[in-house]
Amino acid sequence: MSEVDLKKRRLLQSAGAWGVLGIVGAAVPFLQSLNPSRVTRLKGMPVEVDVSNMSEGQQKTVMWRGKPVWIIKRSKEMLASLDVLQGNLRDPGSESSSQPSYAQNQYRSVDPNYLVLLGVCTHLGCAPTYRPEKGAIDSEWQGGFFCSCHGSKFDLAGRVFDGVPAPTNLEVPPYHFKDGALVIGEEGE
C-alpha cells in the first residue's frame, strides 16, 4: 500500500459529503409532492353551517376534510342524561381525548345545546351511528353513538364507555360560532 495522500482523501470526503447533501436535497421535492396539494388544502378550508332551524334531537352531517362532522341539537333531557353516566365512562373528563380546550368540559361543546363531533370512531375509523332512543342498544342505553364495526359505545357527548375497543372519546374538531352560524375547521378569536 502506498501512503495515503491526506489532501486528496479530504477532497474525496468533502465531495462525498456534498453528494449526500445533494441527494437529500433532491429527495425533498419527491417527498413534498406526496403531501396535500394546494387544491387539497383549499378543499380542507373551514365550512359554515346554518344551525338556526335545527329541531331538538336532530342530527346534521357535513363533510369537512373528507370526514363526516356531526352537529346535534341536544334537548334538556339529553343534556340531563350526561350527568348520570359518569361511572361507566373511560375518560369522563376528556383528559386523554382530543378536543380543543373550549370543548373539554362535561358537555364537550362551546354551547351545550349544540354538539359538534367528528363522526369517526377512535378505534379504527368506522362511522358510528346516532342512536338517540333510550334502550336502543342495551337496557341502560341513554342515547348516544354506536359503532357497529367492533361494538364501541359513546354517550351523547361522544364520551366512550368502558370495556369497548375504542380507546378515547370521539374527537371534537375546532369550531366556533360566527354571527349565529357554525364555522367548522377554524378556531374562534
Binding site: 403531501n35 396539494s37 387539497t40 380542507g44 373528507g66
Partner: peptide, 25 residues
C-alpha cells in the same frame, strides 16, 4: 393503523394519503 406510531404517525399518514382522509388523491 399507522397513526398509532408515536410522533411521526400523523404526518406520515398525511404523506401517504396526500389528503386529510383517504380520498381520490
Amino acid at each position: 393503523l399507522f397513526k398509532t406510531i408515536p410522533v411521526i404517525g400523523e404526518p406520515l399518514v398525511l404523506l401517504i394519503q396526500g389528503d386529510y382522509e383517504v380520498s381520490e388523491v
